[in-house]
Amino acid sequence: MPSTAVAQKDGDLKHIILENRDKQGYLLKILEKAQETSPKLYLSEETMREVAHRLDIPLTQVYSVATFYSFFNLKPQGLHSIVVCRGTACHTRGSLALLNEALSMLGIKSFKEEEENSVTSLDGFASVRTVACFGQCALAPVVMIDGEVKSRMTIGRLVTLLHKMKKGG
């Protein structure tokens, strides 16, 4: 299963902010943790407002950071996650075909890699995203499925894994 995070309560966020506000790179840390602990793994408008308010910094700064870094999701994420590496080593070993296969199996019509970081199927079943490199290039192509890194992926294996995922396995 993907995240086992419980619903994010006000208290959690407060805690996260208190714990990190004096650290180096505090805003990244707070937003990363806030996203991780949110049930749909994203930063909602309320979360961002709350962070800005508690840190006493402009909302525009929070929003600018949240939109700048590809790690942050501004939309709710699917139940499952599939991350396809689009780094050079994986690209030369055929990762585009893997991405297309994953999209088509989940019924996702279009995904503009150059414009968005992730896309979620209409039924909210799964999100597909790309990453610049997992640093596992020696075992390319690499795909991460629900947090587990799978190396030397083939289309055949990906299809099997996605079928299993759809059956709830």
Partner: peptide
């Protein structure tokens, strides 16, 4: 400090901005 997926943050001045909590 952990980054959040932006290649340009490897550039020195961008990296500094990033630690400071900016884009």
């Amino acid at each position: 400090v952990t980054g959040a997926g932006a290649f340009v943050c490897g550039e020195e001045t961008a990296l500094i901005a990033s630690i400071e909590g900016k884009a």
